[in-house]
């Protein structure tokens, strides 16, 4: 039984950067299949959640699992960088 991964992406509105981030994360989630769930949070709409996760800049990617917090801040256009940040490094 895989542990279900919840990946949170904080964005602020529809910008080229946030669209690229969503596209890349959706692609990665598809690779991971059922066990991955993507949550996209617009800080305009839900500023409280952003502050709970200590987000200061958008876009920010956060994954919390088993006490480990993985965080990637800024440009999310590079899938390899995202995979590394999520501990998904592969060949």
């Amino acid at each position: 039984m895989h542990e279900r991964r919840i990946i949170r992406l904080y964005i602020s509105g529809v910008t080229p950067r946030s669209v690229r981030a969503v596209e890349n994360l959706k692609a990665i989630c598809r690779e991971l299949g059922e066990s991955c769930e993507l949550e996209v949070i617009d800080v305009y709409q839900q500023p409280r959640r952003a502050s709970e996760d200590g987000v200061l800049v958008t876009p920010t990617l956060i994954e919390k699992s088993q006490g480990v917090v993985r965080r990637l801040v800024g440009e999310l256009g590079d899938r390899r960088r995202i995979r590394q940040a999520l501990g998904l490094a592969r060949g």
Binding site: R8, L9, I11, G13, V14, S18, V19, V22, E23, L25, K26, L38, E39, V40, I41, D42, Q45, Q46, R49
Partner: peptide
């Protein structure tokens, strides 16, 4: 809602989430 070329929701307003009875973060993305 705003969509990317693949039809993914990159933005949704609150009314959309209300209509779908879903939290915003489940709608977006």
């Amino acid at each position: 809602v705003a969509l990317d070329r693949d039809g993914a929701i990159v933005y949704a307003n609150r009314r959309t989430a209300e209509m779908l009875a879903a939290p915003l973060e489940k709608v977006m993305g």
